[in-house]
Design a protein around this nucleic acid. Structure first.
Lengths: 152, 152
DNA sequence: GCAACTTAAGTCGCGCACGACTGAATCGCG
DNA sequence: CGCGATTCAGTCGTGCGCGACTTAAGTTGC
């Protein structure tokens, strides 16, 4: 049996679904002047403010080479402030400005405005999310094992 | 109830799962000298050769501004050839070279090498894929309706 | 006490994605 | 037939992601 056709690939379904979802977010985020990854960073900060770049990277699974320029743009937009930690000068704390905190209210309506477009019920969405979380966790665990194997 | 935390967002689960999956593909595709989107284009061409840029775009849900430079790189790598159609000079036909066709054999092993890493059973993977396909379809249908509304 | 290692943030280069736009070819309607 | 509208591929600018690298600060071991 042929395993290569596009429509049989989970990876391709993921790829297109992700782009379809972010495409639906785009007009709503445009109203807030945010890109999709910037929105995710703010979600993380609204949930817990005053995080280091490293901590944000762990939450979003992004490294500093992606986050640093993104945070610079959020800072230029006046939504966050960055400052070196006094106790460890290597680290930088990212903090919401008043304007950045205020945006939360406007963003709160976004999920509700999109859920109904998806054609899936709430239960299905939660199941999908949980399956994706398990998949991600397994892939990353596996990745760490492989990486470890290189150092043996 | 708070709807904004990162871990409740389907969109974030999609975002991280997609990146985790492509990260697992990367070392295997490196062996073939391909990026992930280039691999998807080849999947489409292995399934049906001699497609126009527009047709490839419909299959992959990408537009020419993404595909044109990507195809140029595949052409530079000697995997595909491009030529203007005689019957419609606006269109360009993308065709696999012998080298591009030959790569299929080496790529055929990739899905099997990855499935076991995902921590999901085959049935779960297929269910996940089908859910994602439905989600994508609904979002795109909804997007077309919205776009139509703008022209009224 | 200091040299070797590790860690945190950041820079750079490349390849997507995607919106806005261009130019050439074709279509459709009067 | 002719000309305005549409279609197709492509360019350009911006913002990710990520690998490879740099710099500065902290940690470890002798």
């Amino acid at each position: 049996m042929d395993v290569l056709p596009l429509d049989r690939q989970v990876c391709f379904a993921l790829y297109t679904a992700t782009r379809a979802v972010t495409a639906r977010y785009r007009p709503l985020l445009d109203e807030l002047g945010l890109t999709y990854p910037q929105y995710l960073v703010l979600l993380a900060l609204w949930e817990q403010d005053q995080r280091t770049v490293k901590d944000l990277g762990a939450a979003l699974r992004l490294d500093s080479s992606t986050l640093s320029p993104l945070l610079k743009r959020l800072e230029a937009a006046g939504l966050v402030a960055r400052e070196r930690r006094a106790d460890d000068e290597r680290s930088v704390t990212v903090r919401l400005t008043a304007e950045g905190s205020a945006l939360r209210t406007r963003a709160a309506g976004i999920p509700a405005r999109l859920v109904c477009d998806g054609g899936l019920g709430l239960g299905e969405l939660e199941e999908l999310r949980d399956t994706l979380v398990r998949l991600t966790a397994a892939l990353q665990r596996q990745g760490e094992i492989d990486a470890g194997a290189l150092h043996r």
